[in-house]
Simulated assay, not measured.
Amino acid sequence: MPKTSKSNASETVEMEGYEGHLEKFEGGYTVSFEKYTADADLTEFFKGLPNDQCQAAHWGYVLTGKVTYKTASGDETYEAGDAYYVPPGHTPVLHAGTEIVEFSPTEQLQQTLDVVGKNMEAAT
């Protein structure tokens, strides 16, 4: 059975305010070890996706800090010690000092990240 950790995940993404270590598992899921070092509302980067929102579901656990997801039915904030499920149709708000572990369907996550990446490049 596959396993990974923050220190040996095969992909690392670093940018101002964000550090992520990702591993794609057979069976179609990606695990992400994420750390936020700056507050950021990422809504603008989801433009172009259906309803301008993330189309991947996420199952996660907040190790430290908090993370907020904005949805059509309102905002939901998860804090240290919370396990959570966020269905497709949301945008994230990151809070400095937060670390999470999150699992997402790889295909939907990659489709979302492709659009977010293009929008981030265009903004710089």
Rank of each mutant, 00 (worst) to 15 (best):
P2Q: 13
P2S: 09
T4N: 02
T4C: 04
T4P: 11
K6H: 12
K6N: 11
K6A: 12
S7Q: 15
A9W: 05
S10D: 14
E11Q: 12
T12Q: 14
T12N: 13
V13G: 03
V13Y: 05
E14V: 15
E16S: 14
E16H: 12
E16M: 07
E16K: 15
G17L: 05
Y18D: 04
Y18Q: 10
H21F: 13
L22P: 02
L22T: 02
K24S: 15
K24N: 15
K24D: 15
F25N: 01
E26I: 01
G27T: 12
G27V: 10
G28V: 11
G28T: 08
Y29A: 03
Y29D: 02
T30Q: 05
V31N: 00
V31F: 00
S32T: 13
S32H: 02
E34W: 00
E34L: 09
E34P: 00
A38S: 10
A38F: 01
D39G: 06
A40M: 12
L42W: 04
T43K: 14
T43E: 12
E44Q: 15
F45N: 07
F45D: 06
F45Q: 04
G48C: 07
P50G: 09
N51C: 02
D52K: 07
D52P: 02
Q53E: 14
Q53G: 02
C54I: 07
C54D: 11
C54Q: 01
A56K: 00
A57G: 15
A57P: 05
A57M: 13
H58K: 05
W59P: 03
G60S: 07
G60D: 07
G60M: 06
V62M: 08
V62E: 10
L63H: 11
T64G: 06
G65D: 12
G65M: 11
G65Q: 11
K66I: 08
K66D: 06
K66N: 13
V67W: 01
V67C: 06
V67T: 14
V67K: 10
Y69H: 14
T71Y: 02
A72H: 08
G74M: 05
G74D: 08
D75V: 06
E76Y: 09
E79D: 12
E79T: 15
G81Y: 04
G81V: 12
A83R: 14
A83I: 10
A83L: 10
Y84P: 10
Y85A: 07
V86R: 07
V86Q: 15
V86P: 08
P87E: 09
P88C: 08
P88R: 03
G89D: 13
H90N: 10
H90L: 06
P92W: 02
P92A: 04
P92R: 05
H95W: 08
H95N: 14
H95V: 14
T98L: 08
T98K: 00
E99I: 05
E99C: 03
I100R: 00
V101L: 07
V101P: 05
E102Y: 00
S104Q: 04
S104L: 13
P105V: 08
T106G: 03
T106H: 03
T106L: 04
E107G: 04
E107H: 03
Q108W: 01
Q110N: 09
Q110C: 00
T112H: 01
D114A: 08
D114T: 10
V115I: 13
V115T: 11
V116D: 05
G117L: 01
G117Y: 02
K118Q: 15
N119V: 10
M120K: 11
A122Y: 04
A123Y: 12
A123L: 05
T124E: 13
